[in-house]
Amino acid sequence: MIKAENVQKIFHGRGVTVRAVDGVSTEVAKGEVVVIIGPSGSGKSTFLRCINGLEAFNDGHIVIDGIDLADKKTDLNKVRAEVGMVFQQFNLFPHKTVLENVTLAQLKVRKRSKAEAEDKARQLLDKVGIGEKENEYPSRLSGGQQQRVAIARALAMDPKVMLFDEPTSALDPEMVGEVLDVMKALAREGMTMVVVTHEMGFAREVADRVLFMDQGKVVEVGTPEHFFTEPREERTKAFLNQVL
């Protein structure tokens, strides 16, 4: 489903050159849940943003469902429509109601009819447990509710892949659970997911594979059991010691 080959992302700023993503190669199969962990500044979010072209990468290839993002002829808008993304800061559209948030892209990008889009939106809002709030504006919702709407908004496009960029990091602790529950349900349904998170519990429970990144490189890859019980690399051990 996703194939990344030697992806490089270099930031230039104030005379320093930062290799945010430094030669990352990995593959994500259909239905697989990959969790990327690592210390802040390790390039995991940047890599995730490269996958749907929000961040242009300098070298390498990312192929999604057979389409190469590095190809200049690729229409990024079409690729993005197939790749859902959930942000740390939710990024709901504050001037639109919950329902409008979920229907807008369906109407404008997928060109669905209003009735069809609203049907789909209500179905998804019910699924994330927020159906009764469809006419509220985002500012009236709690962080956890907003993030669940954001997930419904991304799902409404029937994406082939869902990307999660630290979806629980901006939430109050008591709201983390409700968002993770939605994500777990999604994983069980066979959604292909790439999740950047600090929730080790989620990684252990849901991930098919865990990627540990540091300084722009993938340091270690493995199943959760391997990863949390017998990590090979020193850097991984040091990180796990700090977070667990």
Partner: peptide, 13 residues
Amino acid sequence: PRGQTEAARSLGM
């Protein structure tokens, strides 16, 4: 906020 544009673009707009 930039996040608004990112969210819109990530939906394929």
